[in-house]
Amino acid sequence: MGRITDCFAALRAEHKTALIPFVTAGDPQPAVTVPLLHTLVEWGADIIELGVPFSDPMADGPVIQLASERALAQGVSLTQVLAMVAAFRRTNTTTPVVLMGYLNPLEAMGYTEFAAGARQAGVDGVLMVDSPPDACSDLTDCLVQHDIDPIFLIAPTTTSQRIAQITRVAHGFVYYVALKGVTGAGHLDTASVAAKLTQIRAHTALPVGVGFGIRDAATAQAMAAIADAVVVGSALVTRIAACADQPDQVPVVAGTFLAELRAAIDNPSRSLQDTC
């Protein structure tokens, strides 16, 4: 069993929902990332999603596009991202790390070399946004051979037939994209998300995380009530971007925000409607 599976099993025993922050590796500065990851764990992250910067992030909204641009401007490569994970692992051997990004940097490195390097660095899962399972089975096979969980997206437009196809090859957890749009967009409709989660759970016993559109404590709390994990990306990256000029402030700002979300999802009875 991998770290991701262990993590969800432990949370399930405590009746807790996983909190998964997303940050882009190297944003706003490469030196900030490893301390930032430790801070996120300290303030309540159960799993880390680490964005691999890419020049053409087609599924991302402006917030994460700009985070990618900031990282790339400092030359952050996939090799460096793996080195960051390895550095994080020196003092944290339990929190799962999922790499999220686009296929081409992996193509350039070569799937086998990437999977071996990622495994050695301590990566637990890989989610390639532009690579649904039917697009690239050779990457999936390669990851599984190296004991890395291939994580896949399910969207509002995904048919029942595709859900069956995706959950057959998914490991670790599946990631439900809560809205039609890019990261950081739109408004969540809790009822329709709940209905889709029911449909997904009819196909798989894997935990289901929800992301895209979780912007604050209230939306995190609403999603945590129906999902096994909530992913927060753009809302967190916005706060990181706001202190890009004072990188030493990044961990505390991000940690404070994460603590709010943690409190909200762990206390489902506390109403947040008034404070938002």
């Binding site: 087609m58 697009a135 997206l153 399910i154 969207a155 437009t157 994209v177």
Partner: peptide, 21 residues
């Protein structure tokens, strides 16, 4: 049928677009 010209082509898009495509 998968849109492959030899090793090229294919359908590398985010899941949301798979059904519309």
């Amino acid at each position: 049928e998968f849109g492959h010209f030899g090793r090229y082509g294919g359908t590398f898009v985010a899941e949301t677009l798979m059904e519309p495509i």
